[in-house]
C-alpha cells in the first residue's frame, strides 16, 4: 500500500562495511546467513576478528559455534572499547544481539546489522505480551492468548518484534483474509 505513511519505527538496513580504527571485529551469524557475511569476515584483518555462529553451519572450518545468547553475552563483555559487531540473521535475532551489545556499552555506530535473511517476523501481542516467532502472514494467531492479531509494521527494537493487535475484537467470528508479509 504505497499511500500508507512510512512507519518510522520500522528499521531500515544499509550496506555493512568494516569499521576503521577497530581493535576487534566480532561477527555473529546464523548458519543460514553465513554466506552473506562471509566475505566481510574474510576481509577483516587476521588476529583481530572472531566469528560466532548460531545453528549448525554446513561449512565447519569457519568460526565458533555458539549455543545461546548468554554465551555470546560473555564474548561481547570481553570486547575492548574499540570494537565493532556485525550481525546477520532473522530480524528478531539481529535486535537481540544489538541490544546485548548496546547493554555491554557499545555505541550504536559500532553495531552493524545486515538486512534480515527472511521476511519472518517476531510478533509481540499487545494484549497478553506473548511472543510468537516466525510469522510470515497477517493476521496471525497469538501463541499466548489465541487472539487473531493484525501484524503491524510498527517495530519495537526493545523486543525485536512487530506489534500485533487483535483484528476482530468486535466480532471474533469475522476472520479476514490473510496476507503475505513483506
Amino acid at each position: 500500500m504505497p499511500d500508507e505513511p512510512l512507519i518510522k519505527s520500522r528499521p531500515t538496513y544499509t550496506e555493512v562495511s568494516l569499521r576503521p580504527n577497530t581493535q576487534k571485529h566480532l561477527f555473529v551469524s546464523t548458519a543460514q546467513s553465513l554466506s552473506r557475511i562471509r566475505s566481510l569476515y574474510e576481509a577483516a584483518p587476521k588476529g583481530e576478528k572472531a566469528l560466532y555462529l548460531f545453528g549448525k553451519p554446513e561449512v565447519t572450518d569457519l568460526g565458533t559455534e555458539c549455543g545461546s545468547l548468554s554465551e555470546l553475552d560473555v564474548v561481547i563483555n570481553a570486547l575492548p572499547l574499540a570494537s565493532a559487531v556485525y550481525v546477520a540473521g532473522d530480524e528478531g535475532f539481529l535486535w537481540d544481539v544489538h541490544n546485548l551489545a548496546e547493554k555491554a556499552g557499545l555505541a550504536s555506530e559500532q553495531i552493524q546489522l545486515l538486512a534480515p535473511e527472511s521476511n519472518k517476523r517476531r510478533l509481540f501481542c499487545t494484549h497478553c505480551y506473548a511472543i510468537t516467532e516466525e510469522v510470515t502472514y497477517s493476521p496471525h494467531a497469538c501463541s499466548g492468548c489465541g487472539r487473531l492479531l493484525l501484524v503491524r509494521d510498527h517495530y519495537s527494537k526493545l523486543h525485536g518484534a512487530y506489534v500485533g493487535v487483535q483484528i476482530n475484537a468486535e466480532d471474533p467470528a469475522d476472520i479476514p483474509e490473510t496476507e503475505e508479509l513483506v
Binding site: R19, P20, N21, T22, Q23, L81, A82, S83, L106, A107, S108, E109, Q110
Partner: peptide, 10 residues
C-alpha cells in the same frame, strides 16, 4: 579518541 577507535557518539 578517534584514532583509538572511540565511537563518535561517546
Amino acid at each position: 579518541a578517534q584514532s583509538l577507535g572511540w565511537p563518535e557518539s561517546h
